[in-house]
Simulated assay, not measured.
Amino acid sequence: MILGASLLTARGVPAAGEYELRTSLAMLVADRLGAGGSFTELQALDFHRGHVEMGHDGPAHLAISSRRPLLRGLGVYHGKRGYGVSVEFDVRHGPVTAFGIVQRRDGRFAFVASEGETVDGPLLRIGNTTSRVDFGCDPGEWTDAWSATGISHHWALGTGHIAADLAALADLLEIDLVQVNP
């Protein structure tokens, strides 16, 4: 499933894991803006190096990989019973944008975005896309600010800084854009 979803995502058909429609839409928007858009969530905080580690066991956007993706067989699949094959890589190093869609209490939607840089460093070898993202601040402060927006635990991670494009789209759709830059 993850390999197939990753191949679809790389072809512009976002197939968000765990059937999240808002994240699928965020992946689609990021892809159409030329940023790709890999399904992602928080994995760890590296306070020593100042990075947020994020990724997921798929679906990965293969077109934005920093290297050739590795297929890794997993005996424990994303912390659940069962096994399978997952796609492992990190997003191309350089500018990135974390982008998600939230639904507010009144039912209205809003975009949430934060620009950072993916950087080199040790990665978890767990069959996930894993990227080390530097948002230019303490990773704990960034995580607190990001979480305070009401974002779900999944979003898209795309290459390039696309917050200005997202702001223009939000304006056209008459919805809010919340930029997280602690």
Score class of each variant (00 low, 15 high):
65 S>A: 15
42 L>G: 05
61 H>V: 02
10 A>L: 02
162 I>A: 12
119 V>A: 09
96 V>D: 00
55 G>L: 10
25 L>D: 14
106 D>A: 12
139 P>M: 15
128 N>I: 05
88 E>N: 01
149 T>L: 11
152 S>R: 04
110 A>V: 10
120 D>R: 15
60 A>C: 06
171 D>I: 00
29 V>H: 05
64 I>G: 00
5 A>F: 01
116 G>R: 00
54 M>N: 08
159 T>G: 08
85 V>Q: 03
143 T>H: 14
119 V>E: 07
66 S>R: 13
64 I>P: 00
175 I>F: 08
87 V>C: 06
17 G>H: 01
83 Y>L: 09
117 E>N: 09
43 Q>M: 13
115 E>Y: 02
31 D>Y: 12
33 L>K: 05
68 R>F: 09
115 E>K: 03
50 G>D: 06
54 M>V: 12
178 V>K: 01
127 G>Q: 03
12 G>P: 02
48 H>M: 12
132 R>I: 03
63 A>Y: 11
99 F>I: 06
65 S>P: 07
149 T>K: 14
111 F>L: 09
177 L>A: 08
146 W>A: 06
13 V>S: 06
108 R>F: 05
115 E>C: 10
5 A>R: 01
107 G>E: 13
37 G>D: 03
154 H>Q: 05
130 T>I: 12
129 T>M: 10
61 H>W: 10
42 L>I: 11
153 H>M: 01
104 R>F: 09
60 A>D: 00
173 L>D: 06
154 H>V: 04
33 L>R: 04
100 G>I: 00
62 L>W: 00
102 V>H: 06
132 R>H: 11
134 D>F: 14
65 S>I: 12
156 A>S: 14
85 V>K: 01
179 Q>G: 02
